Amino acid sequence: MSVTSERRAAASALQRAWSFAKRALLVELRIYANIGRFVARRPAIAPGAVGFSYHKPVFTVLMIFIVLSAVEIPIIDLIVHRWPGVRIAMLVLGIWGVTWMFGLLCGYLMRPITVGPDGIRVRQGLELDVALAWDDIASVAIAKRVDEPKSPRIEQSDAARTLVLRMQDETNILIELERPTVVRLPGHAPKGGDQEITALRLWVDDPKALLDEVRRHL
Rank of each mutant, 00 (worst) to 15 (best):
A141N: 04
K150A: 13
Q124M: 15
A141F: 01
S139C: 01
W134G: 03
V140T: 06
R153E: 12
Q156P: 01
L126S: 04
V146K: 14
S139D: 13
G116Q: 04
A138F: 02
S151K: 08
R121G: 06
A138T: 03
R111I: 02
L132Q: 07
G119L: 08
I120F: 05
G116K: 02
E148N: 03
D136H: 09
I137F: 13
P117M: 03
L132N: 06
V140Y: 03
A133R: 12
G119M: 07
S157Q: 14
E127C: 10
P149T: 04
S157G: 02
E155N: 10
D136M: 11
P117S: 06
M110L: 12
T114S: 13
A131N: 10
L126P: 00
A143H: 14
Q124V: 03
A141Y: 04
S157D: 12
P112E: 09
E155S: 14
L126H: 09
I137R: 15
E127A: 12
G116D: 07
P117W: 01
T114W: 05
V146I: 12
A131Y: 01
L132Y: 09
Q124R: 13
R123N: 13
D129K: 08
D147S: 10
P112I: 11
V140W: 01
R121K: 09
P149I: 03
V115D: 04
V140K: 06
A133C: 06
L128A: 10
L128N: 10
E148F: 03
G116S: 07
I142G: 10
L132A: 05
T114V: 08
S157P: 00
I120G: 05
A143D: 13
S157F: 10
I120H: 01
I120M: 04
A131G: 06
P117D: 11
P117K: 12
A141Q: 14
I142N: 07
G116Y: 04
D147H: 14
R153F: 11
S151L: 00
A131E: 12
I113H: 01
V115S: 08
D129P: 11
W134F: 05
E148W: 09
P112L: 07
S139T: 15
L132M: 06
A133K: 14
V115G: 03
A131Q: 13
G125Y: 07
P112H: 07
A143N: 14
V122N: 01
G125M: 05
S139P: 03
A133M: 09
R145L: 03
I120K: 02
P149Y: 05
S139E: 11
W134Q: 04
I113G: 02
I142V: 14
I113M: 12
T114R: 11
G116P: 02
I113S: 00
P149K: 04
